[in-house]
Amino acid sequence: MRRTSRSVLPGFGLSLGITCTYLSLMVLLPLATVFTRSADLSWADFWGTISNPRVVASYRVTFGASFVAALVNTVFGLLVAWVLVRYRFPGRRIVDAMVDLPFALPTAVAGIALTTLYTPNGWVGQYLEPFGIKVSYTWLGITVALVFIGLPFVVRTVQPVLDDLEVEVEEAAASLGARRSQTFLRVVLPTVAPALLTGFALAFARAIGEYGSVVFISGNMPMKTEIVPLLIITKLEQYDYAGATAVALVMLLVSFVLLLTINLLQWAARRRVEA
């Protein structure tokens, strides 16, 4: 048994063995196929695939809508977290539990519900129609769906930080003459900023890969509202495995970079607190 430190506890070999075997077979092996399959393509073909106008359009749609949605979630997520942590109102606990709904609800259910809400004669859509605002089958609809999906990420990341904020620091600022808005901008916000950034990154990462809640409301028009996951499925259905993997590889790389960034942000935040 390979042990770096002598430990009295048993089960190291067994647990590490199970873990590594599982990870290799269930995670690494399947993911490896993306890389090996793309390697089948020559550089020229690879580049040609991902620079195809339709593919580029889908990247723009996915990343663009995800970015805007994550931004909306950052602003409103901070507001929701603030209200939940700081204020008392009837039903606060229920509202707090509800924030996790997008985690618990199957994406397909969210997808059809949102679509039906925003069609021209839907509950919300009918009020937007006279203003010429179309949500269903547009870029706007995609963003709306992604806002739904990403909401808990920002709220849950920011809540513990707000909770830990010492009251004394805000009292100190008040005793020094700061107005409430000044205290918020100069003292509270900088402290919460790392958590906001992490929440944004999490919401963004989730949004770019999202399929079920988006595919119904987007209309999937190539070049206009086609998201990358759908494009991948289309290519798979056409047995264009190489093309699908090429597109997927770019997504995977972006996701991994995001994952690393998020981990780094959280590690840096922990270090600052432990000072």
């Binding site: 590594c20 196929t33 770019i208 999202e210 399929y211 990358v228 995001l258």
Partner: peptide, 25 residues
């Protein structure tokens, strides 16, 4: 190891299905 465990979180659901198609399709 911890990062590897987190990997599936970072992968889009569609890609998660796709890799098994690539393996067993």
């Amino acid at each position: 190891l911890i990062t590897l465990i987190d990997l599936p979180f970072a992968v889009s659901p569609v890609i998660s299905g796709m890799i098994f198609v690539l393996l067993f399709g």
